[in-house]
Each structure stands twice: as structure tokens, then as C-alpha cells.
């Protein structure tokens, strides 16, 4: 004992306190003889798809009215997105815009009407640097470790700061109870309540079960997805051999949805 100096004593004291703080619940459990508690209580499903940062590539050449209809339909159906016809209170996760509206900064007087009015599928861009996450006062919208910009509907207070922050108009607010506007509900997914903001969640619930996003599945190859940090992923190969654009890239939000022309 005599060779412990003051510094070391403090170190041990500190470590001991730290362990005590973190570990006292373990002692409580051990007291009950339940060693199983040492096993992690919450786990990712083994079949869950994982990535460092999910991204999407939408090939505009392959989009036609049928694919657009199928993608929006399946997304809105499986997520119980209400169909509200009044544009004031519309709720949309993925929808069709004309090229000139999706990319207003590229508008050009001499652009052919075909390109100007070319259909584009728009959705949340799952930005790498998302302004909506930055402004949210309760962390109700947050970025998951895999890059998905998520919504925690249980926590949202409905201040709509994220809607002002999003430069892509990707967010919708429940101006009233959405339930009555959902026909053919999907019993496996919840609704939302009035007064919260919602948007595309990159089908996190499907990825966590090992399934691709619903729109990707319905798009017949027009929408591809993958881990953009993985150089061998399908989307990285597409991006390295094609010219791709992103919406309002100059704002520095680093959208994860790419468009092929």
C-alpha cells in the first residue's frame, strides 16, 4: 500500500467511482442470480441490412407513369400515408414532380418541353448534413448511424421548424387526425397522430428486416440503393460511370438521393 502515491490513489478512486456509477445495476441483478442479464437485451435482427450510409440512385430515363404510380402507391399504402386531396393539408412521402419543379435552379428558357416536364420522383434526400436534424429542438428527427434521417413520431412536438429548415419540401405535417383519410390500412404499420411531422424513412422497418425499400422493389430497376461508402456497391459503380445530379447540391446538405439523366 505504501507505494501508492496521491496521483494513483485519485486515479483508482476515479475509476472506482466510474465503475460504481455504471455498474450498480449489475450488482442488483447479480444479487437476484440472473446472470442472463449480461447478455445484451436489445439486438439488431441478424437479417437486417446494414450500411455506413444508405443512398439511392433514381434513373429518370427508366421512369414511366406506371412505375411512378407503383412506387408512390406501394409506399403510401404500406406506411398508412393518408390520401388528403386538399393541397393545403397533403401528406406525401414520395411523389411525382416535373423536372422544372424538382430542379428549379436548372430552369432554362430554351430547355425542351420534354425535359422541362419530365417526371421526377422526389422524396426525403436523407442528407448527410441535414438541416432538419440541426434545427429540431427535441431530437425527434435525427440521423441514424446508417445515414437514414429518421422521425420519432412519439417525440415530435409539432413546431414545424424542420419543415422551414428542409429546402426540399420533403416534410408533411398532420394538420388534423389522418386516420379517416387512410383506406385499406396496413395492420403491420402504425398511423400518425395529428400535430406531428412525417416524411420518408428510407423504409427503415424493411431494412431492419432484411428487405429493400418498397419503392426500390416496385421500381423495376429504375431506383437503385446501396451503401455509398462502399466502393464495390452497385450504386457506387453506377455513379462512377454515369453523370448524376442531386437536388440543390449547392446548399451543402449533401443529399443521398442521386438522379441519372
Amino acid at each position: 500500500m505504501s507505494n501508492i502515491n496521491r496521483r494513483e490513489f485519485l486515479k483508482i478512486l476515479g475509476i472506482g467511482t466510474f465503475m460504481g456509477l455504471g455498474g450498480w445495476s449489475i450488482f442488483e441483478v447479480v444479487g437476484k442470480g440472473e446472470i442472463e442479464a449480461f447478455v445484451e437485451k436489445y439486438k439488431k435482427a441478424p437479417e437486417a441490412l446494414q450500411a455506413k450510409r444508405w443512398a439511392m440512385v433514381i434513373d429518370l430515363k427508366k421512369l414511366d407513369q406506371k412505375i411512378i404510380h407503383d412506387c408512390t402507391e406501394v409506399c403510401h399504402r404500406i406506411h398508412n400515408v393518408p390520401k388528403i386531396l386538399n393541397p393545403k393539408e397533403e401528406i406525401k412521402w414520395i411523389w411525382e414532380e416535373k423536372f422544372k419543379n424538382a430542379f428549379p435552379e436548372m430552369k432554362d428558357d430554351y430547355m425542351s418541353p420534354e425535359i422541362k416536364n419530365m417526371p421526377v420522383l422526389v422524396l426525403c434526400n436523407h442528407c448527410e448534413n441535414p438541416p432538419c436534424v440541426r434545427v429540431c429542438p427535441t431530437k425527434a428527427t435525427f440521423k441514424r448511424k446508417d445515414g437514414i434521417v429518421m422521425m420519432d413520431m412519439h417525440r415530435c412536438i409539432g413546431c414545424r421548424f424542420c419543415m422551414a429548415g428542409c429546402p426540399y419540401g420533403a416534410r408533411s405535417f398532420n394538420w388534423r387526425d389522418p386516420r379517416q383519410y387512410v383506406k385499406n390500412e396496413n395492420p403491420e404499420f402504425p398511423f400518425r397522430m395529428k400535430g406531428v411531422v412525417e416524411k420518408c424513412t428510407f423504409c427503415y422497418e424493411r431494412l431492419d428486416r432484411g428487405l429493400p425499400p418498397a419503392c426500390v422493389e416496385a421500381s423495376k430497376g429504375a431506383i437503385m440503393y446501396g451503401d455509398i461508402t462502399d466502393p464495390n456497391s452497385e450504386i457506387r459503380k453506377i455513379l462512377s460511370s454515369n453523370f448524376a445530379i442531386r437536388r440543390k447540391a449547392k446548399l451543402g446538405t449533401k443529399p443521398s438521393v442521386y438522379y441519372l439523366l
Binding site: 440541426r134 434545427v135 429540431c136 429542438p137 427535441t138 431530437k139 425527434a140 417525440r155 415530435c156 412536438i157 409539432g158 413546431c159 414545424r160 421548424f161 405535417f173 398532420n174 397522430m193 395529428k194 400535430g195 406531428v196 411531422v197
Partner: peptide, 20 residues
């Protein structure tokens, strides 16, 4: 607020990156 009953979430989950 859309969900005024949850206003205290601002204190419960303080978020210093939000100007709010």
C-alpha cells in the same frame, strides 16, 4: 405547436444544436 402536451420534451431532450 401541433402537440402542445409534449412541450416539455424541449427540456426533457435538450438539443443544443437547435436555435430553439
Amino acid at each position: 405547436l401541433g402537440q402542445p402536451m409534449r412541450v416539455l420534451n424541449v427540456l426533457l431532450h435538450p438539443t443544443p444544436n437547435s436555435v430553439m
